[in-house]
Design a protein around this nucleic acid. Structure first.
Length: 186
DNA sequence: TCTGACACATA
DNA sequence: CTATGTGTCAG
């Protein structure tokens, strides 16, 4: 995940849905980052893989991102998926914008906290290993760069051969859309 | 390895 | 129009 001094959004965005909350109780939802280990990582372009190298650095302020809908009733949280697209990461240890601070070339795992205000601020925490990432200051792997460029709307300017939606609509004969159906397996 | 100006995108 | 989110690239 790219981090900058001024703060960078995570992409793809962290999204969650909720079940079994009490619809009429008040909750807040927070995200923070857990250090997966105390190692510093290095990317070997030759072997196309990350390896843990030396001792990592400790980060001073372990900040958390409070979802802007907080606080809300359980009914609100369960209404649909919740997105953390406003969450920003920074490598600036002196950041005063309230962004989540990380060390570049270190590995992190997002953690989601549900605080129930109506129940003495009791907290339930969840984390998903598949959302772990390594913070970088510049992309190390071109396949990741491609993933971002192809799927992040803000990076559309770097796409090479994508056809504009209105152009496709105006000249359907030039940009036919074929649908492929896989044969059934028995 | 990291930074900041930049062109080009969204909202 | 303004404000802001992208990766690029030279240093």
């Amino acid at each position: 995940m790219i981090v900058t001094k001024s703060g960078r959004r995570m992409f793809p965005t962290l999204q969650v849905s909720f079940a079994h909350l009490n619809p009429s109780l008040s909750y807040s939802v927070l995200v923070d980052l857990e250090s997966v280990d105390d190692k510093r990582y290095r990317y070997s372009f030759h072997q196309s893989k990350w390896t843990a190298t030396g001792q990592g650095e400790v980060q001073l302020p372990g900040r958390s991102f409070v979802h802007p809908d907080s606080p809300s009733l359980g009914a609100h949280w369960m209404r649909g998926g919740i997105s953390f697209d406003k969450l920003k990461l920074t490598n600036n240890q002196l950041d005063d914008n309230g962004h989540v601070i990380v060390n570049s070339m270190h590995r992190y795992r997002p953690r989601i906290h549900i605080v129930c205000h109506s129940l003495n601020n009791s907290i339930h925490s969840f984390s998903f290993p598949e959302t772990a990432f390594i913070a970088v200051t510049a992309y190390q792997n071109h396949r990741i760069t491609s993933l971002k460029i192809e799927s992040n709307p803000f990076a559309k300017g770097f796409r090479e051969s994508d056809v504009d939606e209105s152009t496709r609509a105006a000249f359907p004969m030039l940009f036919p859309l074929f649908s492929l159906t896989m044969p059934r397996s028995s």
